[in-house]
Structure formats: C-alpha cells, structure tokens
Design a protein around this nucleic acid. Structure first.
Lengths: 231, 231
DNA sequence: GTCTTTAATTGTCTACTTGACAAATATTAG
DNA sequence: CTAATATTTGTCAAGTAGACAATTAAAGAC
C-alpha cells in the first residue's frame, strides 16, 4: 500500500493541542476554561488550545498556549503530554487530532485574562463543555490524581516556598478527603528528597507557625502517599 | 488568529500509528519489529505501523495494524494508547505525527510473518532502529513495567489458562530479577479478582504439578505487586 | 519399582509500616 | 492573661512484607 510515497496520497489532518490546566484553591481542584468566541459551539466553555504550527514541536505548542493563557512559564509549572483524541467527528469542520496536555500550576494571583476563568472540577456540568472536552478533562483529572499518588508533583501546585499544610491541602483537594496532619507530615519528611526545609517559619492566622519548605529533587515517591483504594 | 476557519488555512499533517507489541518468552521481554522494505531507512528494523485513514478512529487504526502483523485479535490482548510523537523532523519526507500504541500479547506459536521478528528488548541496539523508534520503544517498555506494577495486565502476557509460575515469569522478565515463588503466590491469591482457579492442574517437566488459573475481573492491584525501588 | 531431582505449595517468624489518637508546643484573638 | 487553633512530636496496636524452612507431588534415571 505504501509502495510509493507521495505526501499528497495521504489524508491531511489538522493537529491541535488542548490544555487541561489544573490548580488547587483549597478545598477545591480547579480547571482553567475559556469561553468560545467563535462558532461552532460559540459561547460554550472549552479547554484552551490551538493549532500546531507546521514546524513547531508538540511540546512547544502546548507551552506557548500555556503562557498565552496564564502568563505562567513552564519552569514554575509542570506540563506533560496527556493523551491524543482523534475521533473522526469530534470537530464538525474537519478532521482534527488533538494532542491533549496536562498542566499543574500554582494558583496565579493576577487577575484573569479576558474570557478565561477557573472552574471547580467537582461542580462542573460535563454537558456544558464544547466538543469532547469533558472527556479530555476527565482524563486529565484522573492522570493528575494518579501522578499525585506516586510522584512529588504535588509541589507544583504550591508556591515556591510552602508549608506542609499547603501541600496537604493539595491531596485533600484532589481526593475530597481530610488527612491526618501528623501522619502526613511524617510520611512526607520520611521520603528522601520530597521537600527540603528552608529553616524559616510562617504563620497565617492562629496556631503554631509552620516551617516552610521548597520542593526537593526527587520525582518519584516510594511508597505512594495516598492510601490504596482511595479513588 | 483563528477568526476565520478555512481548513486550507492550517498546516496539513500526516497522522500514523506505530505499535510497540510486547510479549514475554521467559526469561526475556521481547518486541515485534519489521524490516523496512522501502526507503528511507530501507532495511532497518522498525515498529509496525501505518497511516490513519481519513475517517478511521485512532484505536481502530492501531487495532487493524496489530491484526495485520500478528493475527492476534484485540479480545485476547491488551492495546492502549501510549504517547504521541511529533518532532518536526522525525520523518524526512513530510510532517508526520505518530500516535504510538502499546500492545501486550501472549507469545504466538504460529510462524512469523514475512519481515517481522521478535527481538529481546534488553539486547537491542537502539541505534539500529529507524526514525525515532528507539525512543518510542523505550516509552513503551517503561509504560509496560509501570502498568505491571499496579494493574492485573500481566495476565495478558499469558495464555488464557496459565500457572502461577508463568505469571511470575512475566514479572521476572520485565524486571530481570527472580521472585520468591512462595511469597509471589500468596500475594497474587490474596488480591481479590486477580486470578481465578480452574480446579485443574498441569505439569511441565519434573516437579509438582501446578494449579491453573484464568484472569479475574479485577484491573487494579492494591497494593502493587513489585517492591518499591525496583527499576 | 525405587531413588534422586525438581518445582509447587504451605507454614512460620521477624522487621517494618500504617493509621488512630494523645500530648506538647507556639502562635493569634479577645 | 486566657481561650482557641494549628503545628509538631510521641505512642501503640494491627497489619504487611520478605526470608527461609518444611511438605507435597510429579518426572526421569537406574
């Protein structure tokens, strides 16, 4: 079938990137959505994304969309390829294959850009999203949860310097379940390279001030942090 | 930028699927490769794959390549999307985005198809592979290992009816490390729904005959099977 | 047939990890 | 100064994991 090899012989696809940008604002896990300004599906919420340039790498395309929408540089966030969605009819206009990416960012304090807003993942109507974006979002949330379990990525939801309570709130937001502060702390500190103490403390409201930490160099957690069986 | 929306405005990509088909022939983990019959890279080993049709779903395309090359139906195997590779220069002819898939199959007894052969993963020269297929293969092996840890997919490397020794050899092949048969057995049988006893036994060579099992309906393992820290 | 070898299966024990909860410490708010 | 709150340290019972010995049941040599 591919004895000759003329580009024109093969069906042309458009390739896009779509981003599932997650953040934690305790006690919620939130996702960044944009309101579509154009038809089709004008006015509905959608994942930020766009076309990949003819000589642009997939990761570069995802990175530049992230900067466009959030102003967050990749250095301060986590960005990874998620999954590729290519159902023939997912976009009514033409055959589009979307390489979805997952970003985990610390909540930006700056005001939102036009048309973009954070939405709580739990209380989001799947039917309100454009195209197959509900499916993509679900894949992103599942990936995020599973990576939180066995990697140190929870730190990428935190400020550069953070307390263990903040780190704990990331897990609590992702699972919707409270964790014992004492056991959580011992587990985190027992894991070599998860966090590193700054020597400083910080206090917000009443209660003993908490020590602050920065992310360590480890990437994998052995053993995982969340209990088995927790969804 | 995307105020108008004419398909012709956007760069055309070719989309392919490439398959990392893994099997276990104790004590080795092996991958199916085909020898390229056409330029470029004529004569080098490559992952099986091909173009996605204009109205063909990605999963369907992967499935049909698997049947073409191995004759194995998806019902008896595991097939999942792996990762998408889209470096601008990965194929010299044109812009090609490849949606790589991972298949885990029981070793087929039938003779090989023309140009295709099983290769031991450990003793394979990465430089001998065409295009960026060495990178794809590495991603596939890593994915397979991590899924073996926390899912029941090891059973898809086994015949439909198998002994615990066979199942154990899957883990031993993937990690290159021997496991204690006694502890392995207790762990597997303690995991609800991993395997189900047939009541029959089977003996191959000397030694007490082993009971045979079929795969259970569970998909996830809690807790994981392999010890933390094992590569 | 009997003996030797091999592998599956069962049993046992020690060290470690987990999670629940109590106690001590260090702040803020009034 | 007192009450309230949150971090941090301490304790302990229950469960898990891995090492290794013992038992069972077959194949193959003689």
């Amino acid at each position: 079938m591919s004895s000759t090899y003329d580009p024109a012989d093969f069906p042309a696809f458009a390739v896009t990137v779509d981003l599932v940008v997650l953040t934690v604002r305790p006690p919620n896990l939130e996702v960044l959505l944009v309101r579509r300004a154009e038809a089709p599906q004008k006015g509905r919420w959608a994942l930020p994304g766009g076309f990949v340039g003819p000589s642009q790498d997939l990761a570069d395309a995802a990175e530049s969309k992230l900067v466009d929408k959030t102003g967050i540089r990749v250095k301060q966030a986590h960005l990874e390829q998620l999954q590729t969605f290519g159902q023939p009819k997912r976009d009514p206009r033409m055959r589009v294959v979307s390489v979805a990416h997952l970003a985990m960012v610390a909540v930006p304090s700056e005001p939102e850009l036009e048309g973009a807003a954070w939405h709580t993942v739990g209380s989001l109507d799947a039917a309100a999203l454009a195209f197959d974006h509900a499916e993509i979002l679900q894949a992103g949330v599942e990936r995020a949860r599973s990576k939180l379990e066995y990697t140190t990525l929870a730190t990428s939801f935190c400020r550069s310097e953070f307390t263990l309570a903040e780190l704990r709130s990331v897990y609590e937001a992702a699972w919707g379940e409270r964790l014992d502060a004492a056991n959580f702390q011992r587990k985190v500190l027992a894991t070599e390279g998860f966090v590193e103490s700054t020597g400083r403390t910080e206090s917000a409201g009443p209660g003993r001030p908490a020590r602050t930490f920065v992310a360590g160099r480890a990437e994998l957690l052995h053993p995982p942090l969340m209990p088995p069986g927790a969804l």
